[in-house]
Nucleic acid binder design. Sequence first.
DNA 1: GATGAATGAGGCTTCATTCAT
DNA 2: GATGAATGAAGCCTCATTCAT
Lengths: 211, 211, 211, 211
Amino acid sequence: MPRLNVEPLRRRQLIEATLQVLEAHGFQGTTIGRISKASGLSTGIVSHYFGGKQGLLEATMRHLLNELRGDFRRFRRQHPDSPQGRLQAIVDANFSGVQTQSKTARAWLIFWSQAAHSEDLARLQRIYERRLYSNLVYNLRPVLPAHALAGTAHTIAALIDGFWLRTALSEGRIGHARAIELCKAYIDQAIRDGAEQAPDDTHSARSGVPR
Amino acid sequence: MPRLNVEPLRRRQLIEATLQVLEAHGFQGTTIGRISKASGLSTGIVSHYFGGKQGLLEATMRHLLNELRGDFRRFRRQHPDSPQGRLQAIVDANFSGVQTQSKTARAWLIFWSQAAHSEDLARLQRIYERRLYSNLVYNLRPVLPAHALAGTAHTIAALIDGFWLRTALSEGRIGHARAIELCKAYIDQAIRDGAEQAPDDTHSARSGVPR
Amino acid sequence: MPRLNVEPLRRRQLIEATLQVLEAHGFQGTTIGRISKASGLSTGIVSHYFGGKQGLLEATMRHLLNELRGDFRRFRRQHPDSPQGRLQAIVDANFSGVQTQSKTARAWLIFWSQAAHSEDLARLQRIYERRLYSNLVYNLRPVLPAHALAGTAHTIAALIDGFWLRTALSEGRIGHARAIELCKAYIDQAIRDGAEQAPDDTHSARSGVPR
Amino acid sequence: MPRLNVEPLRRRQLIEATLQVLEAHGFQGTTIGRISKASGLSTGIVSHYFGGKQGLLEATMRHLLNELRGDFRRFRRQHPDSPQGRLQAIVDANFSGVQTQSKTARAWLIFWSQAAHSEDLARLQRIYERRLYSNLVYNLRPVLPAHALAGTAHTIAALIDGFWLRTALSEGRIGHARAIELCKAYIDQAIRDGAEQAPDDTHSARSGVPR
DNA sequence: GATGAATGAGGCTTCATTCAT
DNA sequence: GATGAATGAAGCCTCATTCAT
């Protein structure tokens, strides 16, 4: 009888428990004791699977990054396979699905505030930053003149992060629906403006898949 | 001979030391011991003047809020006393002066990540949020149709916070100058678009002073 | 192989160490550090088993109360099973056995002086007070007229506590043997006087068992 | 103009404040800071007048001893100048006047629990012990046969201390009036019994005044 | 594979004392 | 005579990690 490999299960349990505790108690209050209690496992298990608390935290952030990427892929299927459609999917992914949960938002914020003091977290933060930016540039290129590309991409990225931050902090005073609406409004307008200035701009969509 | 009132001086010293330590060691690493060492004072002094670590942290964030408001007032004098001028001053204040210092940016980020777990910090965060929003609305009203007011104000606020966040996290990959430029570009465009839609719109500036 | 349940052992060790330190250093000098050193365990262990210093102190006083009760039961077997015999056992229990040890006496005194400032300790003190009083009343009832019951019980209780206090404070100037002798002399006389006044008084021993 | 000597005033203020704080906060909670606040004076004053906290505590206990002696003298004038009258005055002094105040009772108890760990306080405790005992013996000698003297004196002393202790701890469950009544009842009976045994015993009252 | 008892370093806070004014 | 700002040692408690089972 093949014994089930419990490692993935345990890792998942611990990461899930970490997110719960981060939401409930903040970074300072996230102790091994609380995580093990929330997961129903023992205190020793964290070192066993993640080498220590730091490893578990890093794995948790990596998990969030993966979920974000998964969300993007899922939402892409719900939009037309065009630059505009994919841009909408980016916005949706950042404000929907798992990202909506307050527990996720709080964890992101906490990790970002820690990034400056942890090379591991900083690396993951850079991955997120680059991925969003290159994703935006890739999809804006077909519809914008080259000179407007970088600025617009940066602006959209800031808009997404800014709304996300305000949503996470405002405890409901700013809703996700509104954030999505305003982000998309800006994107539509930027593309319209770009089209006016460069109506005949033709870009060949490259085959590369944005990360 | 009147004894010098050292209290304001000591409080200032401790807040300054707190900002230094927050930058250098993060929230977790900000201990009373390090703060007292950085300030050249003793460990007992923090409780003496702030009642404890929590009180010092709150006072530090309040200090940052005050500096931001001071920056806004300073920059307002450098711009024409018009809605557009004041909007530019808001942008400048958020990306210039004291706010530019990495030590300030890091402290903001840390405080925000803690806000969810400290009513004191959450209150200060709400003050910031409301102040920025009402400031924007107040100055946009003369130049935008009523229906576009809220959305534009929210978008600008998100843009400011988003660029600020990316600037704080990117360690130089995104510059303040660029952030200011792109924020102002969006504001200019929003006002242009508003003017097109409602060219004869006349708003009477109310006497109220933005907070 | 079942792992030994070390909890009762550890609790016992710590309580014993607490009594030692209380005797040697007084209430003020009873620190976690000294207790852990005396017990041969680590400093963290106290919070682990008792939730903190206060919990350990309370458990220590409860331990003394239990020992006193145990002493009473032991001494009861050495006396005839009559009211007089049980009254003698009460006296013996308060001045013999574990209570004799200076470390126990000092701890009682310390706890009593703290009772006014700790609801936990005050509760335990009330238990002691009531137990002694009701025990005396229960055993005096068969041999005293009703009107003399309460006064005699209070007087015996005061005598016991008074001798105990003087013994604890006098560092040997007053001996336990003398205290027992004088307490018993008073009890004998009180019973004689009661018998004179109410020679034919017959009381049915109630079924209630003295606490 | 003769400047008033403020020293006795200051010492008095600080002792009074110490008693207040001891009652309100217990021995542990009696800090220089609280004492100075209660007295309206500065923190430095304690070292100035008493050399330190320990000196103030010792002076406070000495003050209580003096008050007790004063009470005895006062009550003696209210009773006939006979052995019985003086014995009644001893009882009254221990359960009336200043001693009645909960603040005084608490302070006594605290000091006694500290006596084992402070030679200064232990000395004062011995003075109290001896004074009460010799006072009792002196006044019992004219009315008791020699062989009953020591035992009766010890018993009365224990009764006084026991009732005092129970009164101090019981928070009103045992009243001073009852304590006085029962003490006097024992004394009366002891004298009666002594008289029966030795009806013609005549003692000449010595001129010595009990301390 | 997993446990959880135990450790002990380190944090925050309290507080008696000192000393310049 | 008196102040009270400042110190810094020491206490209690938390918690990541280890290791015998």
